[in-house]
Amino acid sequence: MTPISILFVCMGNICRSPLAEGIFRHLVTEAGLNGHFTIDSAGTGGWHEGEPPDGRSIATAQSNGIDISGQRARRIRSSDYRDFDLILAMDRDNVAALEKIAPPEATIRLFGDAALGTGEDIPDPYYGGPDGFELIYTRLLTGCSSLLEALGVERASCSGNTSSVR
Rank of each mutant, 00 (worst) to 15 (best):
E134R: 15
R139L: 15
P3I: 01
N34M: 11
T162C: 13
G132A: 04
E149W: 11
D40C: 10
I4K: 04
P130Y: 13
S79H: 08
V165E: 03
I4Y: 15
D83Y: 13
D91C: 05
H48K: 01
E30R: 15
T38P: 03
S146H: 12
P3L: 03
G119S: 01
K100M: 15
A20Q: 08
S163T: 12
D40W: 13
V95S: 05
R74G: 00
E149K: 14
G45C: 13
N94C: 05
Q71P: 01
I6K: 06
A150M: 11
I14T: 08
I68V: 11
D121P: 00
E30D: 10
A89D: 07
L147V: 09
L33M: 14
A73I: 06
L141G: 00
I122H: 01
G112W: 06
T107L: 02
L148S: 10
V153Q: 05
T142H: 07
P53Q: 05
S17W: 14
T162D: 07
V9N: 00
P123D: 04
G132C: 02
I136T: 14
F133R: 05
T2S: 10
P130R: 06
D67I: 07
E21R: 13
M11Q: 04
H48L: 01
A114D: 00
E49G: 05
L147S: 02
T118I: 10
S157C: 12
R16W: 09
L151F: 10
I122T: 03
M11A: 09
L27E: 07
L116I: 09
E51R: 13
A61D: 04
V165F: 06
Y81N: 09
A106V: 08
R16M: 11
G117S: 06
A106T: 02
R25H: 11
I23S: 07
P3M: 01
D85F: 05
I14F: 11
G46S: 01
I87S: 09
A61R: 06
T2P: 15
T38W: 10
N94M: 08
L148Y: 08
R155W: 15
T44E: 04
F24I: 13
H48E: 07
N94F: 09
D67P: 11
G128T: 03
W47S: 03
N64Y: 14
A102E: 01
T118M: 03
A42R: 14
A106H: 05
G65A: 05
H36R: 15
A42E: 05
G35R: 09
R82N: 15
S57I: 08
I108N: 03
E99N: 06
E30C: 09
N13A: 09
M90P: 02
Y137H: 14
D91M: 02
I4T: 11
L110I: 11
I14S: 02
D121T: 05
G117L: 12
A156F: 06
H26F: 15
Y127K: 04
S69A: 08
D91Y: 08
S159C: 14
A73T: 08
H26E: 13
Q62F: 15
L116Q: 03
S157P: 00
G112Y: 03
D121I: 10
G129D: 15
Y127V: 04
T142V: 07
E154A: 12
Y137T: 02
G35P: 12
D131Q: 06
R25P: 03
S79L: 12
I76D: 00
I66A: 02
